[in-house]
Simulated assay, not measured.
Amino acid sequence: MLSGAEKTYIEAGAAQGIRADGRGLLDLRPVTLETSLLPTASGSARVRIGGVTDILVGVKAEVVEPHVNAPDEGLMSFAVECSSLASPDFVGRGGADLNAELSQLLTRLYASSATRELRRGLALIPGRKCWVLHVDALVLDSGGNLYGALSLAVRAALRVVTLPRVVIIPGEADDDDEIEVNEEVFERLSRSEDAPVAVTLSAVGGRGIYIADSTSEEEACAKAAITMGVNLAGRACGAVSGGTGGVDMDTLKSMLKDAVRVGGDILKTTDSFLQDDIARMESGEEVEPVGFFS
């Protein structure tokens, strides 16, 4: 819990364009990104922001029937678990509510039209068979910007997902087609580059002042926040608001514009780090697990 003096210090600094840790208003903290940590997962990633917020994501795939309303698309399910050791706020009902909120955020991000081609890449036999990706995330530690860290970890895990090669075996009629899963050969997830990242901008202090990648202390000072999903093409994948206050229309327009720009920078930068892993997968080379789970 911040004191009144601490809140005043943070707000006054933001008004001058300088934050408590020395960053500018839209500057991001250092990010550590690891992939392919879990050998039994189809894809995995760990993201740490500022050495504090720490999230681990694993993706598992299985063949199921597609949803009746989207017969030519695959499925994605999301489950987020906030460790009770990460924050006292995660103990009991508060943690359960946050788990549901974060899971719902991911579901919204990946249900948008901007990710339709990614979902279509999971279809096998339209109306009959498709892949479902079970995305499980564990929040190991929390130091602010959970939405952004979570979406980045999920996207990194999806970028390195590999699926067994599936061969369609034609039947006498279209409805008789079957599939054969080859567990010896793996292929990269189609259109994983369409996966979005969430950018949260928090309104702190006076009118028109907002910051990116907020720390826990800064989030406690924010009167309102906007979280927008952004993909590599610069398309919005939905937006949600938070906080008990509001912002004027001009500030909102500016926040949404900056969210797209910040999101684009994050995507391009992280993709440049992922290229080595992606190139090895496309060449058929096995990617060895790294990090403390290897």
Rank of each mutant, 00 (worst) to 15 (best):
A100W: 14
E101F: 11
L102N: 04
L105V: 05
L105T: 05
R108I: 14
L109C: 14
Y110A: 07
A111T: 12
A111E: 15
S112P: 09
T115W: 03
T115A: 05
R116M: 14
E117R: 14
R120P: 12
R120S: 12
L122S: 02
A123K: 09
A123M: 07
A123I: 08
I125W: 03
G127R: 00
R128S: 04
C130A: 12
W131L: 05
W131M: 06
L133T: 00
H134S: 08
H134W: 08
V135Q: 06
D136Q: 09
A137I: 00
V139I: 14
D141E: 14
D141G: 12
G143A: 13
G144W: 02
N145K: 15
Y147K: 02
G148E: 15
A149K: 01
A149T: 08
A153K: 01
A157P: 11
L158C: 06
T162L: 00
L163C: 09
P164T: 04
I169A: 07
P170F: 03
G171P: 06
A173M: 15
A173F: 14
D176V: 06
I179V: 14
I179Y: 08
I179D: 09
E183N: 07
E184W: 10
E184Y: 05
V185I: 13
V185A: 09
F186N: 06
E187G: 01
R188V: 12
R188Q: 10
S190P: 07
S190C: 08
